[in-house]
Nucleic acid binder design. Structure first.
Lengths: 182, 182
DNA sequence: CTAAACTGTCGATTATCCTAAACGCCTTCT
DNA sequence: AGAAGGCGTTTAGGATAATCGACAGTTTAG
């Protein structure tokens, strides 16, 4: 669970296409320092590590959480998306197992007559999306509108809202919400 | 934007109800060390900070990320989305004029051979999306993959990345990123 | 093929951090 | 009152990290 600071710094540096000297120059330290850190022959002080990362630039928080992100899955085949919906509404979540996501991105599919219910949804955060195919009736607060392919929406999730497929073909939407509800 | 390591450590320690000596004992360092760090009279080495945090216990990543943590328009017709792209890449932004948005949601369209460039993109935050039609080559850090309709991606935007339409039909994507770049 | 400019590494010196042991202050107990 | 034990702070000195400068190997230019 503990990270290899040296190897990690080297990976970051190479990811940004910098040489030890180039990074050292930007960071205002000597190339030797970076060499020694990368070999784990020293454990840098937080202040000097910060100085080095400023040259990238990258924050300490990013640096120490990077390995989670690096090891995290980036690409998801259609079949790999995690479906958290029910029979009438399919909600296929991107990066479901990604820890500490900042958003939930979902590929949604509403069957004809599918409905999130007369009890309007309300929760924290903001959400928005783009309709890909079919037609959906969206109610937000007092407003109701039918959206078709290419149309979009964005609102504060605290306002009561409801999705309803009033057409007779399935409706497809890609949506995002933050902070992640799922 | 940089964190005050000393004050931060003190806050963590007090949050766990530990005295300097108690934490020092658990961590295997001296109480003086903790005192000096909390006063910012020294900048601890990463290894000794790790040792101290092991006594809590808390990871370096947790330590550095700890405090990171209505009248507007709701519906947008396809034509109302604000296009901020160029000739080869169309980026149609949802709720462009919405003040203080938490996310950018975009309906993207890449022409055949469109490319975000060999100079990889890097910026703050996280981004993800779902491919609607066509095929796109996505490079994130060292990994490259070709995604087709229904496939998805999610990654930290600080990792260098590049989008490239390697097919001969247009590629369509719905994406989201936070915090909003546009 | 040579020269110049780059790469990463390494030894000796300087600067910084960590420890051990004291200090003063406060509370508790006899 | 006096002793014992808690707290955070401070100082001196040994341990560790950062710098400076030199080194060898590789790549680019002429």
């Amino acid at each position: 669970m503990s990270i290899d600071v040296g190897e990690h710094l080297r990976a970051v540096r190479l990811m940004y296409g910098l040489s030890q000297r180039e990074l050292a120059k930007r960071a205002g330290v000597t190339n030797g320092t970076i060499s020694l850190i990368e070999q784990n022959r020293v454990s840098p002080s937080v202040s000097s590590l910060k100085k080095v990362l400023d040259g990238v630039p990258m924050s300490l928080a990013e640096f120490f959480t990077l390995d989670l992100q690096a090891n995290a899955q980036v690409f998801y085949r259609r079949e790999e998306l995690t479906d958290i919906g029910d029979r009438d509404v399919s909600l296929r979540l991107v990066a479901a197992k990604h820890p500490n996501r900042a958003m939930s991105i979902m590929h949604e599919r509403y069957r004809p007559r599918a409905d999130t219910g007369a009890d309007m949804l309300t929760h924290k955060g903001e959400e928005g999306g783009v309709v890909i195919a079919g037609r959906i009736e969206l109610t937000v607060g007092g407003q109701t509108r039918i959206l078709g392919a290419g149309d979009a929406y964005y609102f504060a999730s605290s306002v009561p809202h409801r999705f309803r497929n009033v057409g007779d073909e399935a409706c497809e939407i890609v949506s995002a919400s933050t902070p992640p509800t799922f």
